[in-house]
């Protein structure tokens, strides 16, 4: 009966994942490998960025720098992703019964880790798929942006390369992301114990699910858990890059939701 409860929890979490994340790993992989039929617009230099932006926005504002255009797109996509992660969190059994302050804390610290996990599914060694506007931005082009903009995405490619070797599918990722959100050691939690209990159930469900879904990889849970520490480091570094951009660029405006999240974060 215990295993049946865990399997039912896995199904609930997976269904919440499918209901809330518009671009799944399966869909992203189909597009990246050309199985989906329609190929994305490839953005590989300033000219292709300019063309793509005119295509999506109707006009290209030459007054605006490419770096700012790219970073604003990135911010826009981040806010959408944070909304998706929030809706997903609300569907995780037990999350809604937590104190509202703790729900805020879990999201403040968890949304970026969840987001960078999901973005790994949209990345290959050559670039990242931005399927909301059907484009693929190359890693080499992102590296050519001026500093500190060039440092925004590169560490995420490095993480994705390591994370993607685990070959988790969407049903695994659903539980992995739920475990990231329900983390009992975020700063300032009022009832860490209650959250640890919820995370414990998710981790047990994840363990059982991986055993059934990847019978040939007995150490997969341990490997996946190690990646959670890497994600925390990735987010800390990301917050530093955002501060560097803020300090270096007068024209830069951080979205109010991102401002809230980064303020007093680490």
């Amino acid at each position: 009966p215990h295993e049946a409860n865990l399997a039912s929890l896995s199904r609930l979490v997976y269904s919440a994942y499918l209901n809330n994340f518009t671009l799944t790993k399966e869909k992203a992989r189909a597009i990246l490998t050309g199985r989906a039929g329609q190929s994305p617009v490839v953005i590989h230099d300033m000219e292709s960025l300019k063309n793509a932006e005119s295509l999506f926005l109707g006009k290209w504002n030459i007054e605006r720098e490419a770096e700012l255009v790219m970073f604003n797109r990135y911010q826009h996509r981040s806010v959408e992703a944070i909304c998706e992660v929030t809706e997903f969190a609300k569907s995780i059994p037990g999350f809604g019964s937590l104190d509202l302050n703790d729900q805020v804390t879990l999201l403040k610290y968890g949304v970026h880790e969840a987001m960078f996990t999901l973005w790994s599914a949209y990345m290959n060694k050559d670039g990242i798929l931005v399927a909301t506007n059907n484009s693929f931005v190359t890693r080499e082009f992102l590296k050519t942006l001026r500093k500190p903009y060039s440092s925004v995405i590169e560490p995420k490619f490095e993480f994705a390369a390591r994370f993607n070797t685990l070959e988790l599918d969407d049903s695994d990722l659903a539980l992995f992301v739920a475990a990231i959100i329900l983390c009992g050691d975020r700063p300032g939690l009022l009832d860490a114990h209650q959250i640890e209990e919820l995370q414990d159930s998710i981790l047990q469900a994840f363990h059982l699910h991986l055993r059934n879904n990847h019978p040939d990889a007995p150490r997969l849970l341990a490997h996946a858990l190690q990646k959670m520490a890497d994600l925390r480091q990735l987010v800390t570094e990301h917050a530093d890059v955002v501060v560097a951009i803020k300090q270096s660029d007068a024209a830069f405006a951080l979205h109010p939701l991102l401002q809230e999240i980064y303020e007093d974060m680490y």
């Binding site: 909304c83 509202l100 805020v104 804390t105 999201l107």
Partner: peptide, 21 residues
């Protein structure tokens, strides 16, 4: 905390239809 995270708070309560998004 909810005071300093008004948009996150709103997202939790009302979803992404909030005008702040």
């Amino acid at each position: 905390l909810t005071e300093r995270h008004k948009i996150l708070h709103k997202l939790l309560q009302d979803g992404s239809s909030s005008p702040d998004i």
